[in-house]
Design a protein around this nucleic acid. Structure first.
Lengths: 182, 182
DNA sequence: CTCTTTTTAGCACAGTCGTGTTAACTTGTT
DNA sequence: AACAAGTTAACACGACTGTGCTAAAAAGAG
């Protein structure tokens, strides 16, 4: 009857518009109007797919999570799994930057915080399996050590991409895994 | 002649008001009016000490930097220096949270970015000296490994203070230093 | 007390914000 | 061709934003 539009696809394209706005102007630059313009819609039209601004944000954050999870899920070796978590190319660095922006806002937004904490727990469990695979019977402290190292590398890659280059990230991780085996 | 007020002290108290607002409502919650109210001033009065909002933010960020630098400067042993960088108590966790908020905004604010990058370079150099002190002649990769580990621990302490407890942070750092020596 | 200068408070302005409502448009079905 | 429903656009509302400007209040100096 009406113009045929797949709502889910539309919502996804809106989420990607959110990401672009975040990268350009930060999470503060995200308003109903800026996102609508970025997505090529009117503000009123956007509100037809998302009732509130909070809904837009949670959806955009959830989509980042889903994307990373899908990537990690297909990785097999320990080194490859960690490689999927690190921003080794420009696209994933952008993704990490968006994730970091949402994570800091989660500090004062209960809904986003729930999303973040759930992801944190999953990643912690993942690191636990990685450590167990590389060094069976290792102490629990090694899990947090690996996890903190990864997140630190991600942080540095986002903040100082000129210094924390993909090559350096890989070298650091390889060095750490090598030591973990022994 | 007029009411006697030390401008620098006033500016510092305004900066502390900024920190409290950031902790409560995030960096987005920082406006001339909210900060003025938090500092017990009127908006017009605040503008007498800071010409623009950008000036308020850079001053508040600079004061965080100065405070950390002063603390690190008096530390002697490697372990104590790292201890000053980690949020081992509630006050320093708050400080780290404020720092993280400013750092992410620096991603889209050139002025704040300059402050952040300068601090990043100083911390990197500091980690270089720490590594050299613990393991003379170690590879450069160990510097980034230690720095990323520290920043990852800080990040986790801010985001998940219930999981990344002070005890865990210390244990992880001690474990890393122990390995670094060998 | 009177003067002078710092400090303070308050208002005005144009702009943006989230959100609600309403009308127009588009398109498949009857 | 006529209808119906999904989709879009546009406007209104109150609230908040940063910033400039003006007048009042405060307090040491003469």
């Amino acid at each position: 009857m009406p113009k045929v539009v797949d709502p889910e696809q539309r919502r996804a394209s809106v989420a990607e518009a959110v990401w672009r706005v975040v990268l350009r102007n930060g999470l503060d630059g995200v308003s109903v109007r800026t996102v609508a313009t970025e997505a090529g819609l009117s503000a009123g039209s956007l509100r037809h797919y998302f009732a509130t601004q909070a809904e837009v944000l949670t959806f955009a954050m959830q989509l980042v999570i889903d994307r990373v999870r899908a990537r990690v899920h297909v990785a097999t070796t320990v080194r490859d799994v960690i490689g999927e978590l690190l921003p080794l190319d420009a696209e994933r660095r952008a993704e990490a930057e968006v994730w970091l922006a949402f994570s800091t806002r989660a500090q004062v937004d209960p809904t986003l915080r729930a999303l973040r904490d759930t992801s944190y727990d999953l990643l912690e469990a993942l690191c636990g399996r990685l450590v167990e695979a590389v060094a069976p019977g290792a102490q629990d402290v090694e899990v947090e050590r690996l996890y903190a190292l990864i997140d630190g590398l991600v942080l540095h890659a986002v903040m100082r991409p000129d210094r924390a280059t993909p090559e350096l990230l890989r070298t650091v991780v390889d060095r750490h895994l090598e030591e973990l085996v022994h």
